[in-house]
């Protein structure tokens, strides 16, 4: 659904995005993470047919972004960094304006559908200036969806929302994903990325890493097993089975690095029992995406 090849964008001397290549399949929720100024918004603007790339090419929803930007714009939906609504106009007139620009034949039905879905129908005739931040954000999401785009770009959809509104928006995104839409999600919220995304791309001018949250964690840390014991044991050479990559003892807790815990755990546990260890719990150490993110960015800086 989205193919980018060596996408590059300069602003004067400043290189905002450099040689970005990525392929995103239909129905994927692709999380785009990176520090402030990393080039996320610039990438979205290029992929949505708003800004021309300085170099490289991209095909979105089957259309070349450089050759036919207008067609790309009619096929994709975008939630921009700022909601950018007309504050003096009502919610309804805001949406009607965009529906007309997209020349929708069923404009009013679409407006009603999305205002209802996002819980704004009751307040449709009130000026947007009187809306709360969360309501504006929801209205901007409705605006991005009116023409039923197959590809959706969401630039920080939950930034600045209270936890409850943020959850509503996240649930809504999950629902959109289940409708087979392709979603490109820029976010600083790593919990959100982990919850929603099938794959994650980490960008800092260049694309640093791409993979599912699981893959990124494993690639960075391998897989680690936590064994909780009743009594501490001393680490001996006996525990150094050939497949064990690393072992650390931390009081009554053992941290064991393995390549394939599914196959190797039974052997490890057997050996521990032979050594007289009294095992209480065995589980995989789950790293948060936040740790992965911070480590990868630190690595990039070094």
């Amino acid at each position: 659904m989205i193919i980018a090849e060596n996408l590059t964008r300069r602003f004067g001397d400043r290189l905002a995005v450099e040689n970005l290549s990525v392929e995103i399949a239909e129905g994927e929720v692709f999380g785009f993470l990176g520090p402030n100024g990393a080039g996320k918004t610039t990438t979205v603007r290029m992929l949505a047919g708003l800004l021309a790339p300085t170099a490289g090419r991209a095909v979105v929803a089957g259309v070349d972004v450089c050759a036919e930007p207008q067609r790309v714009r009619s096929l994709v939906g975008i939630l921009t960094e700022h909601p950018g609504l007309y504050e003096k106009l009502s919610a309804w007139h805001n949406l009607k304006f965009y529906a007309d620009l997209h020349d929708l034949p069923n404009a009013e039905a679409q407006i009603e559908k999305y205002l209802n879905l996002l819980g704004l129908w009751e307040r449709r005739f009130e000026p947007v200036g009187t809306f709360s931040k969360g309501m504006k954000q929801k209205l901007a999401i409705a605006r991005a969806l009116l023409h039923e785009p197959k590809v959706l770009f969401l630039d920080e959809p939950t930034s600045g929302l209270d936890p409850e509104s943020a959850k509503t928006v996240r649930d809504f995104i999950a629902q959109l994903a289940s409708e087979k839409r392709t979603i490109f999600l820029c976010t600083h919220n790593l919990y959100e990325a982990e919850q929603l995304c099938t794959r994650i791309g980490l960008i800092k001018q260049r694309l640093i890493k791409v993979g599912s949250p699981q893959q990124l964690k494993r690639e960075l840390y391998g897989r680690q097993i936590v064994v909780d014991l009743k009594e501490p044991i001393t680490l001996s050479e006996d525990l150094r089975l050939p497949f064990v990559r690393d072992v650390q003892a931390d009081g009554r807790r053992l941290l064991v690095q393995l390549d394939d815990p599914e196959a190797q755990n039974p052997l490890l546990i057997k050996r521990l029992v032979e050594l007289g260890a009294q095992i209480q719990f065995v589980r995989e150490h789950d790293r948060s995406l936040e740790e992965v993110y911070l480590d990868l960015i630190a690595e990039e800086k070094a």
């Binding site: 603007r45 047919g49 714009r73 960094e81 700022h82 909601p83 609504l85 007309y86 504050e87 620009l101």
Partner: peptide, 14 residues
């Protein structure tokens, strides 16, 4: 002021 140009230009409007 309303930062409405970007969403506006994201439509098929030329």
């Amino acid at each position: 002021e309303q930062k409405s140009l970007e969403p506006l230009l994201a439509t098929p409007l030329r």
